[in-house]
Write a protein that binds this DNA or RNA. Structure first.
Lengths: 219, 219, 219, 219
DNA sequence: CCGTAACCGAGACGGTACGTCACGTCTTGAG
DNA sequence: CTCAAGACGTGACGTACCGTCTCGGTTACGG
């Protein structure tokens, strides 16, 4: 007969089904209404749940939407197409397809906008989305290195820095193309992007060789 | 002796000073409050203007903020530092500094988020911001080509496509670094970014030469 | 050679047509919209006149409507039907018909309501409407007295007091019937009203004779 | 075993105190500001209540003021002064005192004015005010009949018709005197009014006897 | 017959209140 | 202790009129 603090607290336990229903309702509402017209009252109604239940679990609209959107990004996979270029093209196309979905489009940018003034939200985005998807860069690079397509990293610190940089370049380009420039990131665009990412702008230039590198200076 | 539409319409003309005051007040409010807490009533008060005056000239918060933010981007200049790499680094640092300002940070992303569900707003952003700043890419490329750092373009269509691509890569990377990853785009980061943009990821790889290019295929 | 203030001031004289057009437009707007939805901007538009023109001539909505409504009351006439009872019935029916017209209904009560807090407006109503229509009571009484249906008045002061009282009783009953009780003042009602006005409630009562009068006391 | 609608509905019940506070605040605002300057926002503030709470319970200014004013009329009592004439004078003086209060003056006429264009409001006024105060006429008549001052009614239909008529005559005269003519309904006026109401205009006329009644014809 | 002063239309202006909406909190009764 | 329901205080929304103010342009007198 033990009398330790029970792991299950007193009273009626929280409905497990409610969380899933709420996140799904949030995504549905994002599709139909977009961020700014999305209402917590409406989400609660869609989920068949009271507004109080919703506020018991999330602090507000921002937090809820981050969680609802973060789940979408976990669908991304790094396929093995046999070469670094093909792998990049594959994952970039997946990302582009994701950003074509309205719940991801408006949800993502809106929480990023809010995060510019909210340290907590910024951390939540980094934890739930950014850091989690960096796995794609790390996996891709490791695979390319094992294939011999990329040289090994000089050290762990430099490796992390480069991974971050590449992640920002890839994700940033796709996001900017689809959301700011508002043009589709189609196969043609992805091929052009991958080419520049891998070989650089100056490839064919007469100065594109060692001279250029020298001029760039060491890092 | 022409009798075309008279330039002065009937009635009291709109105050020219009001427009400037409103846009400045909008930026000030963005700094203090951010997008979501920004209120048109508050902007009107700051500008010493009635709310109705504001609604007479802009359809809503989105349109107003696009105009207020667009003016910021016109400050960007392409300095001539003597080489393509240095020019890129210079303009990217300027852009990073701009995105470090709170009125640009929250304003820009918020209107992009809204634009995901608003065709009209999307056009306004493209016209007022995106297309206007592409000048930086075009100038930079032309200068680099005249220096011989970059090869001439095969044709006008390809030239436009590449300019768009580069713009998305540069702007996207900086935006993603500063707003999504929420890390500063400092000089070190800018150097690394410029290196990859110019020479590509695969530069030092044993496969980074003609073999890689072949594998990438033509565009 | 006189140098007194000239009766015609310098400059362009006010358009005479405008006044009539504005008052007519006001009545039309009262019919369609009623008092509370009536807008001076709308009246100006209907009259084909600028808002400033309207404000140059009337201080506001109240004053304008009093003038617009007052004109209606001047249509009332006291017909000679040969007896006091028939004359009263005739004029009451005319008044009831007037109060059945929407421009009179809503206009009259609304300005009366406003006048409860506006001494100036109260005077304007008294001058433009009330005092002007007392002529009906005075004419009717004089005619009845010349017919011998009513006794002559004891003195001028008493005569005025009684005329006011009768006016309030007649006009008040019709107004209350049509606007407050919101029932039609039809012929049957008017016959009943006239009978009580002329012979009193207590006519057939066994106490309705001298005893009652004594009980009422002198005035 | 009945399954009728449960008396207690789900959710938080409406605050009972709020209703009283709102109606009192409405009357206070009427006193200070009058009808046209009365603001629902201001009423809400005075009542220590949110504007939304107010709109949850009343459809608008009109409905609210009808209810606020109707309560005032319930204060009217028919005192027993021993004779019909004295009873009438008593209740008329009460009514005059009520109409001297600013909250009744402006409130009553304003809603009547609005009611000229609003069937629903008209019904509300009839139900809440007019029909409710007819009790005074019915009581007074019954008392006078039991005293033998008035003859019994020929039938129920005729009784109702006459009660309505008397109510309109009494209430109408007082309203017109105080609000339209804008003169006080003081004791002297009330005595004169009561005399005419009970004995008629033609009392002392040589033709005021049976001949007049004949001339008036049957109803 | 010509200047000029007051008029006119149009419409922008600073305000005030509107009635609605969503927020996030609270109060209820049931489980 | 949670849940659904729904009322609550708060505060911004976008609209409608208010009454005032510039505009450019138009009359009709009076010198």
């Amino acid at each position: 007969m033990q009398s330790r603090t029970p792991p299950t607290r007193a009273g009626r336990p929280r409905s497990a089904a409610a969380d899933a229903a709420i996140l799904a309702a949030t995504r549905a509402a994002l599709v139909e209404l977009g961020w700014s017209r999305l209402t917590l009252g409406d989400v609660a109604t869609r989920a068949g749940v009271a507004k109080t239940t919703l506020y018991r679990r999330w602090a507000g609209k921002n937090e809820l939407v981050v969680d609802a959107v973060a789940e979408l990004f976990d669908e991304l996979r790094l396929p093995d197409h046999g070469s670094l270029a093909a792998d990049i093209e594959g994952v970039v196309l997946q990302f582009a397809a994701l950003l074509a979905r309205p719940e991801a489009r408006s949800g993502l940018m809106a929480v990023v906008a809010e995060a510019t003034r909210d340290e907590t939200l910024r951390d939540r985005i980094r934890t739930s989305i950014v850091d989690r998807q960096k796995r794609l860069v790390l996996e891709g690079r490791a695979r390319a290195q094992s294939r011999g397509e990329l040289p090994p990293e000089p050290g762990p610190e430099e490796a992390a820095r480069t991974a971050d940089l590449i992640f920002d370049m890839v994700a940033g380009a796709v996001v900017h193309r689809t959301l700011v420039s508002a043009e589709p990131a189609d196969e043609e665009w992805v091929r052009g992007f991958t080419r520049i990412l891998l070989t650089g702008l100056a490839t064919h230039s007469p100065f594109g060789g060692p001279a250029l590198l020298e001029e760039l200076g060491g890092v």
